[in-house]
Design a binder for these strands. Structure first.
Lengths: 200, 200
DNA sequence: GTCTATACCATGATAGAC
DNA sequence: GTCTATCATGGTATAGAC
């Protein structure tokens, strides 16, 4: 990555380079079936790039995974940042982040990596995932902190809860094969956030 | 399972049968490193059972996985049921379930299966996972429903939120390599449940 | 940069003796 | 029920020509 002086091409470029097509194919396959289940052969087929080219651009599967995960994390963070730092009132930004339409059955592209042994065993693959959640939680905490009468501990705990809720909603939707499970979980959280609490 | 007439041995039996040791080893390995990463060889080594015995008791890896996952799900459900149907007031039962000490870095033995391609692709493996979450959510919903002024939709949504929160807490703890992340998420949820809401 | 052919190894499973 | 030996497959990577 660091020694790659190639000029960046636009993501939607009509004729993406072999390297970009390999990364895009890997991203898609990782999302659909996980990293360890994705073989170099499959990446070649989906990308339409030959075997020689794959191993020319990436010395091994590991380096391809590193590149693909880095792009996935950067994209996901950019989306969240756009929602959470827009000009809207804090309350609206929070609701917008929580209720954004998500492909619940597909799962979180980043969160699922935490249960992938192939990723866990490899610090270079693990680090982007850690950074993603660190920054996402910080973004959410900053929004909670804008609300009146919120101390630092309170905003911090609520940020962990909000991000965990989304991740767990994905898990429930997948387990139950029920896209609406994530929505139900979010609704329940928003209910209690709205002060319509539950404990006497 | 249905055609197995062998007399059940106590779980903590001094001399467990080969079959039971195989299942126990598989459970442990599935928890530590996932199902697809766990090879029959590893199960043999951990259980101390030879290869011939493994394939005598289980025709293939698939049947071993089925048996091990069934036991894991049954155990996890029994634990949750004990907490959620005890004699304590509803509020206490809920808090007890949410704040039970958990090995956050290890992840949820059941929840992690939702991101395992090996499990997803196999209905026989998938069904116990679905049942686990269906029943767990129902148990939690029943407790919420005991609280005053709670309609059915409200208890349902809160149950989804509570279960999702735990699952997502595991994901965060693993992603951040930070056992306390799950605790923070739970605390944030309990904060808002306590009516100490957040949105103006 | 890209291609085809090939080597290597772990996995998942079978065979057949005891 | 348990053992050892063996096999077939497919994933990962390398070699070397173009």
């Amino acid at each position: 990555m660091a020694n790659d002086r190639r000029v960046d091409e636009p993501a939607g470029s009509a004729a993406a380079s072999s390297r970009d097509r390999l990364i895009a194919a890997a991203q898609q396959l990782y999302w659909e079936q996980g990293v360890s289940s994705t073989t170099p052969r499959q990446v070649m087929q989906v990308s339409g790039v030959g075997q020689g080219s794959l191993y020319h651009h990436f010395p091994a599967k590991h380096e391809l995974a590193q590149a693909a995960i880095a792009v996935t994390v950067a994209d996901a963070l950019a989306t969240a940042e756009g929602e959470l730092t827009s000009g809207s009132p804090a309350r609206e930004r929070l609701i917008q982040y929580l209720t954004r339409p998500r492909d619940a059955l597909a799962g979180c592209r980043v969160g699922r990596l935490t249960y992938e042994q192939y990723v866990i065993d490899d610090d270079a693959l693990n680090e982007p995932v850690r950074q993603y959640f660190r920054r996402l939680i910080a973004l959410v905490q900053d929004v909670f902190a804008e609300l009146p009468g919120m101390d630092e501990g309170g905003s911090r705990r609520r940020a962990y809860a909000a991000v965990a809720l989304i991740q767990g909603g994905y898990v429930l939707s997948r387990a139950l094969d029920e896209p609406a499970a994530l929505d139900s979980a979010v609704s329940g959280f928003v209910d209690v956030l709205n002060g319509d609490a539950g404990l006497p």
